[in-house]
Computed example of a mutant assay.
Amino acid sequence: MSVREDPNNPGCFIIDCRPDGYKGKRLRVSFEGTRQAAEEWERSAMRRHVNVGLDRARTIAGIWPSWITYYRANRAARTADDATDCWRHLKERFGRLQPKVLTRQLVEGYKQERIKQGVKPRTVNKELSYLSSMLTWAAENDLCDPIPFSLPKFPAKMTKPPKPRPLIPQQLTDILDALEPKYRLIYLLMADAGLRRNEAMQLTREQVEFETGVIFVAGKGSKERIVPITTDRLMAELITRKKVKGWLTVNPTTKKPYLTIRKALLRAAKKAGIEKHLYHHLLRHSFGTVATVAGYDLSALQSIMGHSSPATTGIYQHLAGEYLRVQGRKLNNMVVDSRPGSIVDSRPHGVMDSDTKDDEIIK
């Protein structure tokens, strides 16, 4: 048994062993990954006396093409693309392994390696969820035996997403005014109607009913909901595309909806002088918060935003409370700044304005 560097493939190790004993067939495998992972793979193979032949249909990398084909046929395109992106990282550690030789130690090693690379625990858990889904599907379709344990993940308290900090109306207006015109409608739909990014990018003329002022949105799970056109600026932008057929916003190069437009948002924020962590969904959060502050009924807001649970919509009540507290602090700052000698009130101490003097004389 031996593990040595592969001189022809940098980053790979040659594993030379006889899994079925000294009388069994000799196996030489080029393993891509770290030396520690290669040695663990060899030990697992020898300990379990499993057949780790070179048949790719039995390796995790061999299972991947069949699984992703199934996954694309049964999931949203964006979700399948995300799984493909995660596979690039999973393949480096697990691609050459058979499911049978997968161990908790290997998975824990992968977790620690990804954390050292600066990846968040939440992202690592997502990657392992895709791996678990693939192995479960493979076992159900007789491509491998079920693994005898659940893939260890980071605890929920380490993966809880940070509370969103919505934009105030003036910040939204500044960003929308700074946007390049070709992206403006997409972001208006998110900021003024609460649409999700993909819903806004793929909206068609047929989904907009100008007579009644509503938009028919095909949301998650192909569930259709009715969203009112809430602002004059959104209606004005939609009217400019009233004669358009098909998608309301398309990439001029591909003639299809944009795939990503986040850089446009970052450019607009920089131009507007807003220094804040921005992402598409924050505009939707901001809509929900402003709508709650404006007095929207919770059930109506749930219907508009397409939430399956009222608990999800209830988050905006907490965000609205925080938003109002922040606005309330501005009054406190004005009171503090208006003290004698402050920047706002720079009069010498004891000097009164004319109205105050008159009041004092009357007294």
Rank of each mutant, 00 (worst) to 15 (best):
M1L: 05
E5C: 06
P10S: 13
D16A: 08
G21T: 06
R28A: 09
V29L: 12
A37H: 13
E40L: 15
M46K: 06
A57F: 09
S66V: 04
A77T: 15
W87P: 13
R88I: 05
E92W: 05
K100N: 11
E108K: 01
G109N: 14
V124H: 00
N125C: 02
E127W: 00
S132A: 15
T136A: 05
D142C: 03
K157H: 09
Q170A: 14
Q171T: 11
L172D: 14
E180L: 12
I186G: 01
A191K: 10
A191R: 09
D192P: 00
E199N: 05
M201V: 10
R205T: 13
E206R: 08
E209P: 01
G213C: 06
G213D: 08
V214Y: 04
R233T: 08
L238D: 03
K243H: 13
W247G: 02
K255E: 10
L259C: 13
I261F: 09
A264I: 05
L265E: 04
K270L: 11
G273M: 09
I274L: 07
I274S: 03
E275P: 03
L278S: 02
H280E: 07
G288L: 12
T292W: 03
L301P: 02
S309W: 04
A311F: 04
T313P: 08
Q317K: 11
E322M: 05
L324N: 11
L324I: 15
R325T: 07
N333Q: 14
S342F: 10
D345Y: 09
V351L: 05
D358M: 09
